[in-house]
Design a protein around this nucleic acid. Structure first.
Lengths: 201, 201
DNA sequence: ACTCTAACTGACTCATGAGTCAGTTAGCGG
DNA sequence: CCGCTAACTGACTCATGAGTCAGTTAGAGT
């Protein structure tokens, strides 16, 4: 078997094994066994367990981010951006089931935490943009309001993550309905915010 | 040192150590060192590492559940129940910081998964109750609507969890505001549902 | 002062899993 | 048919961490 093919096969098997247990729970012996090769061969392709794990992490976090970012790219309207970003995320969950589980299992990992924080900031900025449209600008930047925005962003991202994970185990539900469920839920809050109903105490 | 006191001390130290790393990341040697005792002494009080971990899990999951359930107990109105339950949960996060982190780190654990599922069902039932008030009863029990309700419940619980965790690192924000942020966010969606705006396609 | 026991320890065994190495095989160019 | 190298393996080392055991100490009761 050619080296490049073998490397890909090891990555594929490792993705699967890492996706069911976490990092500490999975052993390279198990990966080797599942791939039908000896453990030593894994070390021909990867320096260490960490490197193997890191290669997967980088590959799929990058892909996920890529999808979201490029989906958002040319959209200006806040609602369009949110919908497109979330839909792209759902696309990843739908098409890369193992990868999603793998990523989800590693949400504590620094690399992922950074990516999630980035998305959260994106959403926070979107909310701030909405608020600015209806409230005095300096109001929006006050620490009280900043905290308010952060809390909404936390709830949106946390809620979405839970929803995505639920969908992973209810694939019969069409993607469009999941997207709609999120938009309904998120947007009513934001819409209200946009209408200035909530921000003025 | 009396046996009962020592047992409590070990539990306290173990809570702290387990709360920073997960189960696999923490060693009993580390717990013993932090407690200033030998590892063997831990085994005088607990059968195994699992049992020590399990004792903590049971204690605090039980306490958390207790708080929520007893806060909800005598309330009938759906909004009151949601507010009281969430506030009780926040009380736990506020008063038992280490315990919250410990519990949070173990969200993958079956025992916790079961408890969370129970709370989620509680919320799903509440949503269904709201819907029933405004929509034909048989409509609510259709599989399509059941999925819809589950998705909302997922978002509520997932969003709240993220919010609670955020609060854990932003203690300066008053508890009442966190509660309000959640209620604002959740209730606009539910209120709309109650008004029958969303359920009739 | 003398047990007797509960609290406690240091030094062990044993299993597991990461990482290594001295090779063996297979297939391909000459 | 030979030899050369890339792919591959079995059997190892080594570190770590769970769990054990043969004791030692301290202090309460007589």
């Amino acid at each position: 078997m050619a080296a490049a093919d073998r490397r890909e096969q090891i990555l594929a098997v490792a993705l699967d094994v890492f996706a069911t247990g976490g990092y500490h729970e999975t052993t390279l012996d198990a990966v080797a066994a599942r791939a039908g090769i000896s453990k030593a061969l894994i070390y021909e392709h990867f320096e260490s367990k960490r490197e193997l794990h890191g290669a997967l992490l980088e590959r799929y976090v990058h892909e996920l981010l890529e999808r979201v970012v490029s989906a958002i790219a040319e959209l200006a309207d806040h609602e369009d951006r949110l919908r497109a970003g979330v839909d792209a995320f759902l696309g990843f969950v739908a098409e890369r089931r193992d990868a999603w589980r793998f990523v989800f299992r590693n949400f504590a990992d620094p690399e992922i935490a950074v990516a999630v924080a980035r998305l959260r900031e994106e959403i926070a900025a979107m909310i701030a943009g909405l608020m600015r449209a209806d409230a005095p600008a300096e109001w929006v930047d006050e620490p009280e309001m900043v905290a308010e925005i952060e809390m909404i962003a936390q709830q949106l991202t946390g809620g979405f993550q839970a929803l995505a994970n639920w969908w992973d185990e209810h694939r019969d539900v069409p993607r469009a309905r999941v997207l709609q469920a999120f938009m309904d839920f998120a947007w009513v809050g934001l819409e209200r915010g946009a209408a200035g109903e909530r921000w003025q105490r």
